[in-house]
Nucleic acid binder design. Structure first.
Length: 573
RNA sequence: CGGGGCGUGGCUCAGUUUGGUAGAGCGUCGCGUUCGGGACGCGAAGGCCGCACGUUCAAAUCGUGUCGCCCCGACCA
């Protein structure tokens, strides 16, 4: 490819719309242009990167027995009614109506359509296991698209769906996909860390997210510094309650004190000169309309997701002021467990509080030396709080560290949720009709591009890993008016092309600085510079983008040398 | 949806407070000089100032409405 013909308009200045490195660089390097919020056009260089990632994904999916299919983007509403997700998906679904007033959506995901596809064809256990995948655009009307390709409304996704006869085989499919994902992200130059996660609206019990660690990531990942435990912060577990907690202190006498106007933990701690962890927060929630109390240590926060799962309720919301007044007898800020008649649930860490400070269920008053067992009782204990960096690891004696992560993939065991809802069954060997056991495995292809750039860039631009670079080599004659240089450049370019190497020749009538800047910005892993001085000695300069190290290579050996580097890609990555 | 900010040549932005008919740098085109890290000189093109309505002799500037974009939050396979 000739640089003079490549449609890759580079920008000297950073567009105001971009905030993070990957977004800025993709716009500046001419990979991407915005069409609407969260919707983008891919220019030739951007598309080449996408294609390379897709190729790696295809190879790894095929290697574990995946077969590629292409599914509709426009999907009929009936399918979604069958699983109940036409309403469950809510505002996030792009919906449209055809001229006959039939309802459709732009597929946000493809569980429904693939299950129906398989339902009508798979009849027997002999046809299993089946692993189908697709790579195509998905559509979600995100509340807040952001950061370029990081969270778009139209984005490219690979989804694989596995269909197995039982849990045991699903397990095989799951771990095959899990291991394939580890290989894929490693090959793309963005090793991703698998972490335990929440399965969200999609359902299922076992699930891992693949996180590329980067400061621009939207998720907080917690990982143990001692053992292998790693989890998304929203899902991370607290350390289970120790069986025998020994309290050195004596139970002090319960006392009520006036705390006028002090209704928050901050106000109480400064008023009484105590620490937040000596307080017991009492939160009143409405679970499916019924009030419940939740006890959390003063310096902790409740994780609503955990509470909802624990209570197994549909709707969960913080109680309104009126309900709080009615159930506790006091306005917001003075609730406490003593004397409450609604069911109380305590987080593990709240259970161990001794001589705690709580609200007195009376405006302007708090209680000192509150103790469970003596002053109140709870219905049960659970892991209910948000986990933060510094908290103990739930699996070992270590402690958790935090890092930002970009979720580039997720694997789920779906079980029979969709096959049951859609009637996708098969006949077992024993002749019994059974729902297919499903798994699904997604990779955000376009998001992966952003993640790779977040991890691989510097002041000057993108540093593409060789495996997904749009082109591997750029040839730059320093002085475009020197026929010796331009002629040599053309020859080298042709030789590299003939050797099957992806190469761009910068044949533009530009000053050297401009060409170097563009080469760095776009991020070609290798640059061959052809200048007067080294050429006089029969040498070419070979610069590695990553560390900007330059070596001199005899003109005749350049192709062989590059081939060697491409084989041993460590040098560039 | 709540909060904040922004819409002025392709890009980055000034001008808006105090209305008087639009500017700079970069980029683009032409000519010349220059050629190892985003050169220089001269010349040129390019904007109904997001859109609509209103106030006014006069609106980029004031008012109302509307659309779009960005950031924080809620949200999220």
């Amino acid at each position: 490819m000739l640089m003079s013909e490549l449609y890759s308009p580079t920008l000297r200045e950073t567009p105001a719309e971009a905030e993070i490195a990957s977004h800025q660089l993709m716009l500046r390097a001419g990979l991407l242009r915005r069409s609407a919020a969260g919707i983008y056009s891919y220019l030739p260089l951007g598309l080449r990167v996408i294609r390379k990632i897709e190729k790696i994904i295809r190879e790894e999916m095929d290697a574990i027995g995946g077969q590629e299919v292409l599914l509709p983007i426009i999907q009929p509403a009936e399918l979604w009614h069958e699983t109940g997700r036409w309403s469950d998906y809510g505002e996030e679904m792009f919906r449209l109506t055809d001229r006959q007033k039939r309802k459709f959506c732009l597929g946000p995901t493809h569980e429904e359509i693939i299950t129906v596809l398989v339902r009508s064809e798979v009849r027997s256990y002999r046809q299993l296991p089946l692993r189908l995948y697709q790579i195509q655009n998905k559509y979600r009307d995100e509340i807040r698209p952001r950061f370029g390709l990081m969270r778009g409304r139209e984005f490219i996704m690979k989804d694989m769906y596995s269909f197995d006869r039982d849990e045991k085989d699903l397990d095989k499919s799951y771990w095959a996909a899990y291991r394939a994902y580890e290989r894929i992200f490693k090959r793309c130059g963005a090793p991703a860390r698998p972490v335990e996660a929440d399965s969200g609206a999609i359902g299922g019990d076992v699930t891992h997210e693949f996180m590329v660690l980067a400061d621009a990531g939207e998720d907080l990942v917690l990982y143990c510094s001692t053992c292998e435990y790693a989890a998304n912060a929203v899902q991370a577990e607290g350390r289970p309650r120790q069986a025998a907690v020994s309290h050195p202190a004596q139970m002090e006498e319960l006392r009520k004190i006036a705390t006028p106007g002090a209704s928050t933990i901050e106000e109480i701690t400064s008023l009484l000169e105590i620490k937040a962890e000596e307080c017991l927060k009492t939160l009143i929630y409405l679970a499916d309309g019924k009030p419940v109390g939740v006890l959390i240590r003063g310096d902790h926060s409740l994780n609503e997701l955990k509470l909802q799962k624990f209570l197994d309720c549909e709707a969960l919301e913080l109680a309104d002021d009126e309900t709080i007044l009615k159930t506790t007898g006091a306005p917001v800020g003075f609730a406490g467990p003593v004397g409450l008649t609604i069911p109380l649930y305590a987080d593990y860490d709240a259970a161990d509080l001794f001589n705690a400070v709580t609200g007195a269920n009376e405006a302007g008053y708090h209680l000192l030396n509150v103790n469970m067992g003596r002053d109140y009782n709870v219905a049960s204990f659970a892991d209910l709080r948000e986990i933060n960096p510094g908290d103990p690891c739930p699996r070992c004696d270590g402690f958790l560290k935090g890092a930002r992560g970009i979720e580039v993939g997720q694997v789920f065991k779906l079980g029979t949720k969709y096959s049951e809802a859609l009637g996708a069954t098969f006949l077992r060997e024993d002749g019994e009709e059974t729902p297919l056991v499903m798994g699904c495995y997604g990779i955000g292809v376009s998001r992966t591009v952003a993640a790779v750039i977040e991890q691989n860039h510097d002041q000057d631009g993108i540093i593409w890993p060789l495996s997904i670079a749009p082109y591997q080599v750029i040839v730059v004659p320093v002085n475009s008016r020197d026929p010796k240089q331009t002629e040599t450049a053309r020859l080298v370019y042709q030789e590299l092309q003939a050797a099957g190497i992806e190469v761009v020749l910068d044949d533009r009538q530009e000053r050297p600085g401009v060409k170097f800047k563009d080469a760095d910005l776009i991020g070609f892993p290798l640059r061959i510079t052809i200048g007067a001085k080294s050429l006089a000695q029969g040498n070419l300069e070979l610069t590695i983008r990553k560390d900007k190290k330059t070596i001199f290579v005899p003109k005749k050996e350049i192709v062989a040398h590059i081939k060697g580097i491409l084989k041993d890609r460590e040098i560039c990555e």
